[in-house]
Each structure stands twice: as C-alpha cells, then as structure tokens.
Amino acid sequence: MSDRKGEKSLRGAVLEYAWQNYKTRPDHPWIKYPDYEVLRHEDNRKWFGVIMTVLRKRLGLDDEDDIDILNVKCDPMFGAALKSGDGFFPAYHMQHDRWITVLLDGTVAKEKIFPLIDMSFDLTSGSGKSGGKTAAGPSDWIIPANPKYYDVGRGFAEHREILWKQRNKIFVGDDVYLYMTAPIQAILYKCEVTETDIPYTFEDGNIKISRAMKIRLIETFDPSFLPVGRLKTHGVSSVRSPRRMPASLRDELDVWRNNEHNGEGVTT
C-alpha cells in the first residue's frame, strides 16, 4: 500500500533541494493536473525534473492506489542499471532511454534521489552566456579520491595544479572538495577548477580517464574537521561519484570562515 505521508515528505524534500541548490521553484503547467510540478532551468527553461501523482497500476504495480513519482533525465547506461533496482522504472510518459521514473514513497532514499536531480540538471543545462553555470553562480562539488591510487598531498606538494578526472559538467571557477575514501573517509582538500574538458587518455586497470580538468589547491583540512559522520548530518551518506555539495553544508562552512573559527583547518 502507498505511504501517502512518506510521499508528501519526499515530495517536499525534493522541492526544497531544488530550491536550496538551484533556486528553482516548481511551476504547474497543466490545469487538469494541479499536483503535477515541473522543475525548470531559469535560463533555458528546460525541464530537469517532473513530479507527478499517478495510479500505481500505470507503472505495473499491483494495486489501485495512487503514488507520487519523480521523472529525471539520466545517462542511458546508468539509467538501465538503476531500472533493475527497486523503486526505479522506465520514465512515465517520457523518453525511456533518456529519462527514468523514481518512486517517492520511501522505496528510494532521498540520499539516492538528490544526486539524480544533480545529474538531470547537468544533462539539461545549456551553455548559453553563463558558460553552463547555474543561475546561482559557480557550483561546489564533493568528489571522491582513493588514496590507494593517487597521493593527492604529494601531487599538490610537487605541483601548484594537478589534473583530475572530469565526469560531470563542471566548469572553470567551480570549487571541488576532495573526499578521501577509506580508510580516511573525510574531506581533506578544497580546490578551484582552473581548466576543463582537457583531452586526456589514461588507463591502468583501476582508473580510466578520457577527459580531465585542472584543479588548484585552495585549502586543506584535518581529517577530523569534515569526516563522513559530519557529512551524513547534511545528507551525504556516501561519495561514490561527483555530487553537488548540499546547501546546508556550504552555509555551515561559510559561517565557519566568516567567524574565523579555523578549527583544525589550515588555509594554504
């Protein structure tokens, strides 16, 4: 049976995330369906999310209740993998190869939904005059770094800028926070992106790179300052691929800097 209370909570969480990260409020283009909500880019007006309430049987589910869903644009290969899991379906009333439907009934946790919104936003953004940036300006990213494969500290000790694998639509001027995976499990470095879309081919069995960006070190942190436990309080339960920094964490760091409470951090 559908959990309507949980659905309303997740719907609200999705809308709040869109506002906090992209300053986007939903519009309601269909008079016949006032509960349908569309999330659009401010500059190109393209959709990056659609929330609808549909009958569960429309998705092939086995009862007559209705359910809230979210449609997002997705990389075709990634979307195909997602659709094999619970809570994901071919896009309802949209291109099945480019969009997916996500249940908003609690089957899929919001921590998994938010990165999909980020991906959809990136895939539907245009270059335009802003160079592809959001209307809110440069973005802050959290990017995983495996210390088993590359010594980031040594790299920055030897070079002012280093090359890094580029996946998402990251732009010059964006900030990236490097999250060191196990055994460290903490953000240790803040960097600024100085160049993007650099053709670069590398493969060693662990890492495969076809496109790179240059990043310059701005700030370093002690492992106790931004550990995984603190990130979880802001909805970041894991960092397996580049993801946008939650607005709440960004605001907390701004307050810390403004008050000059450097804690364990070391400005470089």
Rank of each mutant, 00 (worst) to 15 (best):
Asp63Lys: 07
Met94Asn: 07
Ala186Ser: 07
Asp204Gln: 04
Leu15Ala: 02
Asn206Arg: 05
Ile51Lys: 05
Ala247Tyr: 02
Leu188Phe: 08
Ile31Asp: 14
Val266Glu: 15
Pro147Val: 08
Ile198Cys: 12
Gly6His: 01
Asp151Arg: 04
Phe221Gln: 00
Ile215Phe: 05
Ser237Ala: 14
Asp65Leu: 12
Ile67Gln: 08
Arg160Trp: 01
Pro246Thr: 01
Phe89Ser: 02
Leu178Phe: 00
Asp140Trp: 07
Thr107Phe: 10
Tyr17Glu: 03
Gln166Tyr: 05
Leu10Pro: 00
Pro138Trp: 01
Lys5Glu: 12
Met213Lys: 06
Thr268Pro: 11
Gly132Arg: 01
Thr107His: 14
Leu104Asp: 02
Asn168Ser: 11
Phe221Ser: 06
Lys129Gln: 13
Trp256Asp: 11
Leu231Pro: 02
Glu264Leu: 15
Gly263Tyr: 14
Leu253Val: 04
Ser224Ala: 10
Asp204Ile: 09
Lys5Ala: 10
Pro29Lys: 09
Lys110Pro: 05
Leu249Ala: 01
Gly155Ala: 10
Leu188Met: 09
Lys190Arg: 07
Ala182Val: 14
Arg25Asn: 08
Arg244Thr: 06
Ile69Cys: 05
Glu219Val: 09
Glu203Ile: 14
His261Phe: 15
Glu195Gln: 04
Trp141Tyr: 06
Val172Phe: 09
Leu163Arg: 09
Met213Leu: 09
Trp19Glu: 02
Lys112Arg: 11
Ala80Asp: 11
Lys112Ser: 00
Ala136Asp: 15
Ala81Val: 08
Arg211Lys: 13
Thr196Arg: 03
Gly131Ile: 10
Asn168His: 04
Ser2Val: 15
Trp164Asn: 01
Met245Phe: 00
Ser248Cys: 08
Thr101Ile: 03
Gly205Ser: 02
Asn44Gly: 11
Asp63Trp: 08
Lys148Leu: 10
Ile69Trp: 01
Gly173Phe: 04
Ser120Leu: 02
Phe89Leu: 02
Ile117Ala: 00
Ser2Phe: 10
Tyr92Ile: 08
Ser84Ile: 11
Ser238Leu: 04
Asp62Trp: 06
Thr107Trp: 07
Met119Gly: 02
Val54His: 04
Thr24Gly: 11
Lys32Tyr: 10
Asp65Arg: 15
Val108Gly: 03
Ser238Trp: 09
Ile31Asn: 13
Gln185Pro: 01
Pro76Ser: 08
Ile218Glu: 13
Arg211Gln: 07
Gln95Glu: 14
Ile113Thr: 00
Gly6Asp: 03
Arg45Leu: 12
Asp97Arg: 06
Leu39Ile: 06
Thr233Val: 14
Phe89Met: 01
Ile184Cys: 06
Glu264Met: 12
Asp251Val: 03
Asn44Ala: 15
Val236Ser: 05
Gly173Val: 11
Phe221Glu: 01
Ser2Ile: 14
Ala157Asp: 06
Asp35Ala: 14
Ile100Leu: 09
Thr24Tyr: 04
Trp256Val: 10
Gly126Val: 14
Leu231Asn: 10
Gly60Lys: 04
Ala18Asp: 03
Asp63Ile: 08
Leu163Ile: 05
Gly49Met: 03
Phe202Val: 05
Val38Phe: 07
Gly137Trp: 01
His41Arg: 12
Ser248Trp: 06
Cys74Gly: 04
Gly173Glu: 10
Val176Ser: 01
Arg257Cys: 15
Val38Leu: 15
Val72Asn: 02
Ser224Gln: 14
Lys46Cys: 12
Thr233Asn: 12
Phe88Thr: 04
Asp35Met: 15
